[in-house]
Design a protein around this nucleic acid. Sequence first.
DNA 1: ACCCTTTTTCCTGCTT
DNA 2: TAAGCAGGAAAAAGGG
Length: 274
Amino acid sequence: MSITPSATLESPLTSTWGPTNPYHDGPLVTSGYASRLWPHDSQPHFWSKYQVWEWLQQVMDIHQIDASSLPFQNFDMDGHQLCSLNYHDFIRAAGSVGHILYNSITELKSGGQYHLDIGQLELKHETDLCPFPDVSYPSGEIYDPSVQSLAPNISPTPSSPEIKRSFSRGHQVKKHNPRGTHLWEFIRDILLNPERNPGLIKWEDRTEGVFRFLKSEAVAQLWGKKKNNSSMTYEKLSRAMRYYYKREILERVDGRRLVYKFGRNARGWRDAEK
DNA sequence: ACCCTTTTTCCTGCTT
DNA sequence: TAAGCAGGAAAAAGGG
């Protein structure tokens, strides 16, 4: 029953991957995800640069703000540096979103748990070697997989409603996103993290958004892992990809096998956008 | 309990 | 022949 991910995925991928996953997610979506908390056992001061970016991505997700609008490069720093930023630094670095980020990090620094009231993300708490989504943490700061969430408490989200409202974004409200990250976003994120994408998918034309699967089955298994579906195949994944044509998230690319192109409704993949 | 969106499964037929 | 591509159909999954 096991998918033997180790055999298919680990060898080619794990070794080259960094400590953590730049984007949120992690499989184990066993059942409904109630509420998720930030890594309580990992103080932001000790975050790696990747973890900082992951945190950024998650905060954006939580507030349903298009991550492509955030200048990630302004946060090219590790947790220690991040924690030394003051409110104005955040505003300078992220504009209005800085307020939200500041709230989040302040909460986290104080030992609080930034409460996620939506099942948008997952923290990496995986034991096995999921190459992409949750590359293992250096021993010592691995999230215990058995500890899903701890406190059923914490209610007031430091930066919830008001802040959320204050941030204008009338156009990018996600309505349905039952499973967290969408497939196309998953694909996009792999592309956007070349250092962690050991030949899974590659850009064919970066500016046009054309990319090609190099290891279709490996990507499918990764996707399946994320969805806790060990029987995912490229065949099935590609069907889902084809559904994106109609929605213009993807555009057809003639005759070229394993090649896809982001469409007008796909966001966050452009260079300038991030 | 029902509706909706996003896949997931399966399948037939066609193309490389 | 194997691996992809095209889509239709239907069901699964979850959130609303």
